[in-house]
Amino acid sequence: MLTIFKERKIVVSRLIAVLLSALLTVPLLSSCGGGSQKASVPPPVDDTISRTVSDRTTNQTEAKKGLSTGQKVALLAGAAGLYYLYNQHKNAPQEGAQGKYYLSKNGRVYYRDAEHRAHWVTAPAEGIRVPESEAQKYRQFQGYNGSSTGRDLTGLTSEPAPAI
């Protein structure tokens, strides 16, 4: 009877040793391969829910600068407004909300902040007032003078954002 007790004690102690060894390898295995993620570009920040990027001061002064009392204006919102903002910022030299904008493959406009995170841009809900002569090139897009029909920004080509 004593030998059965000793054998059972050895089997239980071996089982506990194997279980503890397995538990000790979990942190080691879960930490493997994580180093490359730190060096990559952080994921995009979708802050379009809480705020919109608006060039209200820039756009209003641009629109007023070229407008006379009798000159017609067009209101660009939605895709037309976004494409207008993209075209105004696509060659900007700096980064950030007032810097260079990029057009994504999925038809959205974004900019990169100082930490190279992408931020989605939305056109102001009230639209952007633009002289009608300048707005003609946005006529085919949704949001031109309140139009709900027209094309969106998918399929437009753009230079890709720089790889970081």
Rank of each mutant, 00 (worst) to 15 (best):
K64L: 14
R151A: 07
T122R: 13
T61G: 00
G143P: 07
A77E: 13
L2Q: 13
A114T: 09
Y138M: 02
C32Q: 10
A114M: 10
Y111N: 10
Y83M: 15
R14F: 11
G66T: 09
E115N: 12
Q98G: 10
Y110L: 13
A135Q: 01
A92D: 11
G155F: 10
G34N: 15
N91W: 03
L19A: 13
V130G: 01
E62P: 00
A92E: 15
P124M: 08
T58D: 07
A80F: 01
Y101N: 06
R8F: 13
D152L: 03
V11F: 14
P131Q: 10
L15Q: 13
A39H: 10
I10K: 15
T154E: 08
A123H: 03
G146Q: 08
G35P: 00
H119Q: 09
V109G: 12
V26Y: 04
L28P: 00
R151L: 04
D152C: 02
R139C: 01
E132P: 00
V73G: 08
E95L: 15
S50G: 07
F141C: 05
N59Q: 09
K65L: 11
P162H: 09
T48L: 08
G107H: 07
E134Y: 01
T122G: 04
A80I: 02
F141D: 02
D152T: 11
S13H: 06
L76F: 02
L67H: 07
Q98L: 15
L29Q: 03
A92T: 04
Y110D: 06
S31Q: 09
H119L: 10
S133M: 02
K72W: 04
V109Q: 11
T61C: 01
S148V: 08
G150Y: 01
E7V: 08
A79G: 03
T58F: 12
G70R: 12
N87Q: 11
T58M: 07
S36K: 14
A118N: 13
P93G: 02
S133A: 12
G146S: 08
Y102Q: 03
A79R: 03
D47H: 07
Q94F: 12
E115C: 00
